[in-house]
Design a protein around this nucleic acid. Structure first.
Lengths: 129, 129
DNA sequence: AGCCTTACTTACTTTTTAGTAACAATCGTG
DNA sequence: CACGATTGTTACTAAAAAGTAAGTAAGGCT
């Protein structure tokens, strides 16, 4: 199953969906965007505390890539101990409703999905036996 | 940075956003849903050809998990060689607009993001030097 | 008898992603 | 003069995701 060699893409290779997924398919980016959307402006440690189980390393990595893409801004206060505050840029804010559209669907249909999964498992067991 | 022990979740642990990400953060699921949304009903090999660079294994895995969640249906035709056709269920179809909302944003802002990235790289080089 | 087809499955390897833990920088405080 | 506070970085490790390649089934065709 190889890439087709025509000039056009076969509905998938290098399509915009992939680029969005490559960017937001990671574990923390969308979570940080949503958090900053709800809380406004937060410092490094506050984001970590709100998320609860993110490591310092991944928080740094995630914030850097969001900053690099222009979705959040980073302000350093020259104090000791250091203080750094993050908030969504206009671009970041423009993304929020689209995330919430998706998570809204998730909330609405999560129960149905879990029930489907259970039913599927049962079907598998039956036919295996 | 540990999970907080209060009954409430700190805006993130076990929140719906994570469940959606856990489900659709993989490389192929959303792609398959979008494809079936556009093409209607497709057989296994056709999906593979349209996507272009998915392995048989990952296509099977992806289709199984989508089926298990009730997002797609699977019909086996008892022929030889075998024929199996997939299409979105009502639940799967209900997800499509939300995906397209997100990818629409991606298309609209991808250039800006790429430019931001470039500008960020340059800033890094300057201050490192 | 051997090859073709399609839709898988399985075992194994590689790649990617994330976690852990220790260290750096810097100044105020006890 | 060690310690704490905060925001990181770095090296190393573990785990998850994905890729590769070979095998399976079952009947039709030559």
């Amino acid at each position: 199953m190889k890439e087709n060699s025509s000039g056009k893409f076969s509905a998938a290779v290098n399509c915009p969906i992939r680029q969005v997924l490559d960017r937001f398919g990671d574990k923390w980016s969308i979570l940080v965007v949503e958090l900053l959307s709800g809380k406004g402006r937060l410092r490094f440690s506050e984001i970590g505390q709100h998320i609860g189980d993110i490591s310092q390393k991944m928080l740094t990595v995630t914030l850097r890539s969001l900053e690099s893409d222009g979705l959040i801004s980073r302000e350093i206060f020259p104090e000791i101990p250091p203080r750094v505050e993050y908030e969504l840029t206009a671009l970041g804010k423009s993304l929020v409703p689209h995330i919430e559209s998706l998570t809204g669907w998730g909330v609405e249909h999560l129960d149905a999905i879990l029930q489907n999964r259970k039913a599927y498992e049962l079907r598998q067991k039956k036919t295996t036996y």
